[in-house]
Design a protein around this nucleic acid. Structure first.
Length: 490
DNA sequence: TCTGGGGTCCTCACCCTC
DNA sequence: TCTGGAGGGTGAGGACCC
């Protein structure tokens, strides 16, 4: 067991909401809720101001709006969050080569491996300096936990929130953990928590008292042993810098349940294409195709098929997903569909070449060397019930029944209402950069402000105003905070 | 008008082979 | 030749995390 508290856990405070507040000065100090805005959207992150109303992550957005009717509800802008996250992760890598990102806003760092800390004092100093550097580089606050293990460092950062730093001194772990809820421990979610509660175990101390055998009996060997060790404050998991992805998947929840079998089939094909796109972007191929269906009653089932070899061929994945769908009863409607690929392998040019050769051979009806994973069969037969499948790839992200009809190629874009998503960045030819505060009935309301400026003014335009254009997010810090003179509203 | 999206890991059942 | 057990591969589902 590690003695020195040199494992650092970094947690950016209310990350998505904080980024939005930093880029939109008028939202500072206000309730901000980031998440899906559709009828089935949920909250991804709520600012601390919104949390005071009871809003929290994973809550249905409709409920969040009821609890916090004056909160600003925004869609997530992942490209911006990723850019900010890259800045933060780069600062962490200056401290140590052993940085383990958990998500865009969280990471572990082994300070000892980087030679930046070797005892409590140097760890505290490093942690404080890191928080200041993050504030300087991004304008955002972060919480830092320091301890001798990953689990305890995470517990510490949780205790440090918001905008704080906490170090757990070696030797104090058990006493510190004992009164805490079992839900504090990683791996104890609602189900395990309830299971333990029914057995009269609600605190970490009671967990330790129960003993390893009892916990194994209750929650299984792997989980039981791990839980007991955590309850004693023991955790020797190393900080791992590089982790290979094990699966790639995409899924969509529909605003209304789908009933039409043809539409469902088309959506599965579209998801398969998106999944392969992501698979190729990540430089992988995969062997097992997984179809996920969530039915009208929220029951979820998965069907999977393992091929004889890995593939990144969209036709192969589409056909496998279609076969899996045939085995699923969708009576009553489906609310979610997903397609995933697991059993990942590194993709090579040779793989691609072999696949394209095999596909050509299959389409030419030559027989010959069959694709080892059954791709030739899948690509060649067209599959049962595939009469409605388009010959080419489905339109880019468009549903089967394109609501706006086909556009004549090469012609100027036909006049249609432009859509302005709440929270998205725009630029006006006269008023400069701003963001969409809301839109409807042919009008869009824009607030003209930028990171570092004072709160800006609001103006309303026609949705088709030619002087208004979507734009990229501005950096949170770094650009001079020029405050453009906003003409007085008449 | 509850309940997203993208993941990981574990368990269990079943089948097949040795 | 038959049988039982071990163990791997596969498929399905659940729990959990951010």
């Amino acid at each position: 067991m590690r003695a020195a508290p040199t494992i650092l856990h970094l947690d950016m405070d209310a990350f998505y909401a904080s980024v939005e507040q930093a880029s939109k000065p008028s939202l500072r100090g206000k309730a901000v809720i980031v998440g899906g805005l559709g009828p089935r959207g949920v909250v991804a992150t709520a600012s601390y101001e919104a949390r005071r109303f009871g809003v929290h992550s994973a809550m249905p957005m409709a409920q969040a709006r009821r609890l916090c009717p004056n909160g600003a509800c925004l869609i997530p802008r992942f490209s911006l969050y990723r850019a900010v996250s890259d800045v933060v992760m780069a600062l962490l890598r200056e401290l140590s080569p052993l940085v383990e990102p958990l998500s865009l806003d969280e990471a572990f760092v082994d300070l000892e491996a980087g030679g930046t800390a070797f005892d409590a004092e140097s760890a505290l100093e490093t942690g404080q300096r890191l928080r200041a550097d993050i504030q300087g580089a991004t304008g955002l606050s972060a919480s830092v936990g320091l301890a001798g293990s990953k689990m305890l460092a995470k517990v510490a950062s949780e205790g440090a929130k918001p905008d704080g730093l906490l170090l757990i001194e070696p030797g104090t772990e058990r006493a510190l953990l004992a009164p805490m809820s079992v839900r504090t421990l990683p791996g104890v979610g609602p189900a395990t928590g309830e299971h333990l509660r029914r057995a009269g175990i609600t605190t970490v101390g009671e967990l330790a008292e129960a003993g390893e055998d009892e916990l194994v009996r209750m929650v299984g060997r792997s989980h039981g042993v791990g839980l007991y060790r955590m309850a004693l404050g023991l955790d020797d998991r190393p900080v791992v810098a590089e982790r290979d992805a094990k699966s790639v998947s995409v899924e969509d929840t529909f605003d209304v349940d789908l009933h039409d079998r043809v539409r469902i089939r088309n959506e599965v094909q579209r998801l398969a294409d998106r999944c392969v796109h992501r698979l190729r972007d990540s430089g992988h191929s995969g062997r097992t195709i997984v179809l996920k269906v969530r039915r009208y009653d929220f029951s979820t089932l998965t069907r999977s098929e393992t091929l004889r070899g890995p593939t990144d061929d969209p036709a192969v994945v589409r056909e496998a997903a279609a076969r899996l769908l045939e085995a699923v009863d969708t009576t009553g409607g489906v609310r979610l569909l997903g397609v995933g690929v697991t059993g990942l392998a590194d993709y090579t040019q040779e793989d691609l070449f072999a696949q394209s050769m095999a596909a050509e051979a299959a389409s030419a009806g030559e027989g010959g060397a069959a694709e080892p994973d059954g791709a030739a069969e899948a690509a060649g037969t067209g599959g049962p019930g595939g009469s409605g499948a388009p010959a080419g790839p489905a339109g880019s992200g468009g549903p089967a029944e394109a609501p706006e009809g086909a556009e004549p190629a090469g012609e100027p874009e036909p006049a249609r209402e432009r859509r302005w998503a709440a929270g998205s960045d725009v630029r006006h030819a006269v008023y400069g950069p701003g963001w969409v505060q809301g839109s409807g009935v042919g009008r869009v309301t824009v607030r003209f402000e930028r990171p570092g400026s004072p709160p800006g003014r609001v103006r309303t335009f026609r949705v088709d105003d030619p002087e208004l254009e979507p734009s990229d997010p501005l950096p949170l810090v770094g650009e001079p905070a020029v405050v453009e003179p906003v003409p007085e509203e008449g």
